[in-house]
Each structure stands twice: as structure tokens, then as C-alpha cells.
Design a protein around this nucleic acid. Structure first.
Length: 567
RNA sequence: CGGGGAGUAGCUCAGCUUGGUAGAGCAUCUGCUUUGGGAGCAGAGGGUCGCAGGUUCGAAUCCUGUCUCCCCGACCA
């Protein structure tokens, strides 16, 4: 490609509305342009990268035996009514009407559609297993789109759906997909971790996420420092550790005027934060109030709480007025002693002896409180977020936190959708069975940003060759005043292109500094500089984007090609 | 959804408090010079000041409404 004919709009200044480095660089390097909140146009150079990432995903999906389809981005409401999700989904789903006033949505995901089609065509166990995928634009009306294409409303996603005669075959396919995803992420040249995940409202049992490690990531990952354990903090179980010591002192009430938070009380009474029990009040979807006891330094894990039978999905933190009316004190002074509602204690809170807690009386706390003696033995459960330094749930190593960008997610869905949509096939005994289903997503457009988060320097993007918009850029110095430079440039350009390389020729006639700055900003992996000086020795300059030093190679396509191959 | 902020040239922003015919840098165009790290000089083009209404002799500036965008939080998964 000749740059003189390729619309590339780079900017020196960092755009004001871009917070994370990938968004800034994509905008500055002219990869994307914003159309509206969470809506981005992929400009020519950006599209080349997006297409290369998509191509790698496609290759690995095909290699793994999945088959590509393309479903509409607009879906009839009817299908979502069948699965029950038309009512369940919130404002995240963009609902639209056609001219006949019929309801549709812009697809946020395609479980319903694919299940519908499989139902149309698959009748026999002989047609299974089946794994269908597409690379399609999705729309999710995020409350708060941010970070450019990393959390956009419209985005490109690869979503695959597999169907199986039994659970064992689903588990087998899940492993196949896990390996395919591993190959994809390896080829993208990024540092990533596979972590246990919560399946969320999509449903299902086993689920893992592929996270690109980055400080700007929106997810917190709990990873063992010396073992294999790794989980999204949402899904990281906390094991009950240690037994409760015997009570050693008499419960007593102390005045703690104005001390509302655990930190304040611990400081005021000069006791350890870990010896304090705090009580949170949640309101279930049915409107009932429940108290959750946590150790002073711990936080409620909302995913775990939503799974607890006494709390359930759809709970919210209770309004302070309701809590105060029920307990007769301000929310900063709640405790399990004489609690008017059932208390569910996290394992870590349940093993503390002689703890400090609110007295259910404003400006007073209780010390030396003991479960079973001063208040009932609570129902116990795993309800907290794991914290750094905790023993890994599998017992190997200690937990360390990382931030990650969710680039892929694989699920064993089970039969939720096949049942809801009435999909059944005949088995060997001519009996109808409901197939098991898996689904597997990769955020293609998000991955472009995620790669940049990991691969950039102060000059710009540093692409791995696998997804770079161009593999090599040729920068001729003084092309219009030196015949030697012009001739070498043209012949090298033609020859490298002939070898199948994606070559960019900077024939804009810019000064060297401008050419170099642009090449570095847009992140081309290899740069060839052709100038009279080196050419006098029959050489050109070769520089890899990720290395500091330039070197000289013979001014032939073979020599350049060999040098690239060696890099 | 709650709170905060911003909409002025293609981009980044000043001007608004105290109303008087629209500014800078970058980018673009022309000419000359320059040519190994985002060149210099001279000149030029480019804006219904988000939109609608109001106040006023006069509104980018004051008032009302509205739309959009950004940030923090909550929510959702």
C-alpha cells in the first residue's frame, strides 16, 4: 500500500476524552473515530487489525471443528419471549419496533436464535455434536460505555454455540474450545490468564474467562502466587479457615460516639479490624430484609450473596431508613446481638471469638461478643470477596490480585435454552432428549484495544506481527532527489509485496522525522529506511519496532525478508 | 438512574464573570527555502459559537427549555 493513497489521519495531540492508553493511541493513530457514545467507526488502518484478529479467531475455530454461520443482528422479540429473557433483560437490551409495530431487539447475544435454527434442522443424535459460530456485531446498551472500543455499546464478537447429546460430550467440546482459545490468545502475542468465572445471568455451570492482564482492566483476578488457582474475584471461593477459639471475656457495652465505620471503631477502641464483625442489611427481591455478618476488613461478594438461598438473585442493599426503623439505631451501629432479622455470617466472621460489633444502639458498640453465647449461632456461608494474602482455595499458595480485561469467556450452559426453546432430538433408543449446550465468546474488537494496553511505549503502538496492519514500512529519504533511492525503493516495495508481505510505502514525501514518528505511532513491526548513505554501500537500514537499535542489511528483498524472518 | 463538568475552526482550547461585528496553537492550502527524528519564513482559506425560545438597540456572553458528550457513583452481567 502506498501511503499517498491510503487515508491515514494521525494526530500529535492526545484526544481529551480518552482515558486509557489504548483509546488514546487508537484515536491518535487514526484507527478509530467516535460516532457517538460507545459507537466507533473502524478507519482503514484500524479495520486491517480488526480483520487480522478476526481471521486468527476464524482459523482457530475452523481448526477446532466449529462451523461458521452469520445470524441477523436484529432479532424478533418472540424468540426472547420463549426463553423468558425478553422480560428478564434490563435496559442493556436495545429494543426496537418495525413499521408494523412488532417488537425486535438489536442482538446482545444469540443463544435464542441459534437454538431456534438448530431446532429447525436437527432431529437426530447423529447430527450432534454441532458447534456453530459467527463473527457478528452486537449491541449492548451499556449504562456507561468507556475506554473506547474496550467497553463500547456496539462491538464485534465471535460467539459460538455447541450442542451435545449428553453432558460428557459437552465437557469434551468445552476442552476443545478451551484449547482453541489458548491458541488464539497465544497467536495474539499477549500475556493472559484463564480464570474461573461466574456464569452470570446467561446460566450454566462451568465457566472460565480469558483475561488479558492490564492495569486498566475492569476485572479483578485472584491468582495463587505458587499454584494453579486463578479466578475472577466474583467467582473466587473463600475457604473456611481455622476453628473458633473459646470465649475468654464477658461481653460489655462501650460508648463509641460518632464512630460509624469499622476502621473508625477499630482505631477508637484500639482493636484489630480483623476482630470486628460488621452487619450489612440486604433486601431480597421479595422485599424481605436479611442481615449479613462479615469480618471488619472484608467485603460482601454480591454474586455469592445472590446465590444464597436466604438472599437470592435481585437483592439490593436495604435503604438506610428501613434499616434504622427496624434496628432502632443508625446503620453504623448494627450488630448480631438481638438482631430483629436472621443473620447469615460469612465463614471468616463466624470463627471470630471475643469480637467487637455494633450494639444496635446509636453511639455504642459491644466488645467480647461470642456467637452461641451472646447471640445465636448464625447460618454460615461463603459470602465475602477473597482478599490478597488469603490462602488459595485449593490450599496451594497465597492469593495475589491482578487486573484483567475479559477477552474471552467459555461456558457449559447445560440445558437452560434447549429446554426453554423446546429443542429435542431422538437418541439411539428413539427417545427424545434435550441436548446440552455450550457457548463461547471472544470480544474481537475489545481484543484490539487489549493488545495495545499491553504492547505500547511512549512513541505509540508496538504490534505483534500477527495482527499488525502492515508488517513492514518502507521510508525512503529524499526519494524525489535521488534516483538511487527511488529505484531501490520501488524495486524493494514490489519485491516484498510479491513475497506476500503487507508492505506500506511512505511515499508522501515527508521529512524523515515525520515518517518515523507516524510509523512508530501506528506500530508497524519493521521499518526499512532507504537513504543515499547506506545505499552507497548497497545497504538499507532495518529496525524492529520493539528494539532500540537499527542495523544495516543488504538492499535486496531476500536480505530484508531473511532479517524479518529471523526477528 | 443520582451527582459533577463540557459543547466556540478538522483537532486541542481561550473568550463568557463585567453584552458591542470571533481568537490562539496544531492541521489544511499557496509560494520560497529546507530534507536522517513531527522544518523555517511569507501569505491564505476555514466557525449559523450544540439546538430552540426569551431579555436587550445589540447575545458566544444574561435567562428558560432541550439535545449531545465526558467524569464519579449506583445499577446490570
Amino acid at each position: 500500500m502506498r501511503l499517498s493513497r491510503f487515508p491515514l489521519a494521525t494526530a500529535k495531540e492526545t484526544p481529551a476524552d480518552a482515558e486509557v492508553v489504548s483509546h488514546q493511541l487508537m484515536q491518535r493513530a487514526g484507527y478509530i473515530r467516535k460516532l457517538g457514545s460507545g459507537l466507533y467507526t473502524w478507519m482503514p488502518i484500524g479495520l486491517r487489525v480488526l480483520n487480522k484478529v478476526a481471521a486468527i479467531v476464524r482459523e482457530e475455530m475452523n481448526r477446532a471443528g466449529a462451523v461458521e454461520v452469520l445470524m441477523p443482528s436484529i432479532q424478533p422479540a418472540e424468540l426472547w419471549e420463549q426463553s423468558g429473557r425478553w422480560a428478564q433483560m434490563g435496559g442493556e437490551m436495545l429494543r426496537i419496533k418495525d413499521r408494523h409495530n412488532n417488537d425486535f431487539c438489536y442482538g446482545p447475544t444469540h443463544e435464542e436464535v441459534i437454538t431456534h435454527h438448530v431446532k429447525q434442522d436437527v432431529r437426530s443424535y447423529r447430527q450432534l455434536p454441532l458447534n456453530l459460530y459467527q463473527i457478528q456485531t452486537k449491541f449492548r446498551d451499556e449504562r456507561r460505555p468507556r475506554f473506547g472500543v474496550m467497553r463500547a455499546r456496539e462491538f464485534l464478537m465471535k460467539d459460538a454455540y455447541s450442542f451435545h447429546i449428553d453432558e460428557a460430550d459437552l465437557a469434551r467440546e468445552y476442552q476443545v474450545m478451551r484449547e482453541a482459545y489458548t491458541r488464539v490468545f497465544d497467536r495474539l502475542g499477549i500475556d493472559y490468564r484463564i480464570v474461573q468465572a461466574d456464569a452470570g445471568n446467561i446460566g450454566g455451570n462451568r465457566s472460565e474467562e480469558f483475561h488479558v492482564l492490564a492495569g486498566s482492566g475492569e476485572d479483578l483476578l485472584a491468582v495463587s502466587d505458587s499454584g494453579p488457582f486463578a479466578a475472577n474475584i466474583e467467582a473466587a471461593p473463600c475457604v473456611a479457615v481455622g476453628a473458633r477459639a473459646a470465649a475468654s471475656a464477658v461481653m460489655q457495652q462501650v460508648a463509641t460516639p460518632g464512630q460509624k465505620t469499622c476502621e473508625q471503631v477499630a482505631r477508637f477502641l484500639d482493636t484489630a479490624l480483623t476482630a470486628k464483625v460488621k452487619l450489612l442489611v440486604v433486601q431480597t427481591a421479595a422485599g424481605e430484609l436479611r442481615a449479613v455478618a462479615l469480618r471488619g476488613d472484608h467485603q460482601l461478594n454480591e454474586v455469592k450473596a445472590a446465590k444464597h438461598p436466604m438472599i437470592g438473585a435481585g437483592f439490593v442493599m436495604a435503604a438506610p431508613e428501613k434499616v434504622e426503623a427496624l434496628f432502632g439505631c443508625e446503620v453504623g451501629y448494627l450488630g448480631p446481638v438481638n438482631s430483629p432479622i436472621p443473620v447469615i455470617a460469612d465463614h471468616a466472621a463466624a470463627v471470630i471469638a471475643d469480637f467487637t460489633c455494633g450494639a444496635n444502639q446509636t453511639d455504642f458498640h459491644l466488645q467480647n461478643v461470642n456467637w452461641g453465647r451472646d447471640c445465636p449461632e448464625p447460618e454460615t456461608a461463603d459470602l465475602r470477596n477473597i482478599v490478597e494474602g488469603d490462602v488459595s482455595p485449593d490450599g496451594v499458595g497465597r492469593i495475589k490480585f491482578y487486573r484483567g480485561i475479559e477477552g474471552g469467556h467459555i461456558f457449559q450452559l447445560g440445558r437452560k435454552y434447549t429446554e426453554a426453546m423446546g429443542l429435542s432430538v431422538l437418541d439411539e433408543a428413539s427417545q427424545p432428549v434435550t441436548p446440552w449446550m455450550g457457548c463461547y465468546g471472544i470480544g474481537v474488537s475489545r481484543l484490539v484495544a487489549a493488545i495495545i494496553e499491553q504492547r505500547h511505549d511512549d512513541k505509540g503502538i508496538v504490534w505483534p506481527a500477527s495482527v499488525a496492519p502492515f508488517t513492514v514500512v518502507i521510508c525512503p529519504i529524499g526519494m524525489d532527489r535521488s534516483d538511487a533511492v527511488r529505484e531501490t525503493t520501488e524495486s524493494l516495495y514490489a519485491a516484498l509485496q510479491g513475497q506476500g508481505l503487507d508492505v506500506l510505502l511512505d511515499d508522501r514525501g515527508q521529512r524523515p522525522g515525520a515518517m518515523f514518528a507516524d510509523a512508530e505511532l501506528i506500530g508497524i513491526p519493521y521499518r526499512i529506511v532507504i537513504g543515499d548513505k547506506a545505499l552507497a554501500d548497497g545497504q538499507v537500514e532495518f529496525k524492529a519496532r520493539n528494539l532500540a537499535e537499527a542495523e544495516r542489511v543488504a538492499a535486496t528483498a531476500e536480505a530484508v525478508r531473511a532479517r524479518i524472518a529471523a526477528a
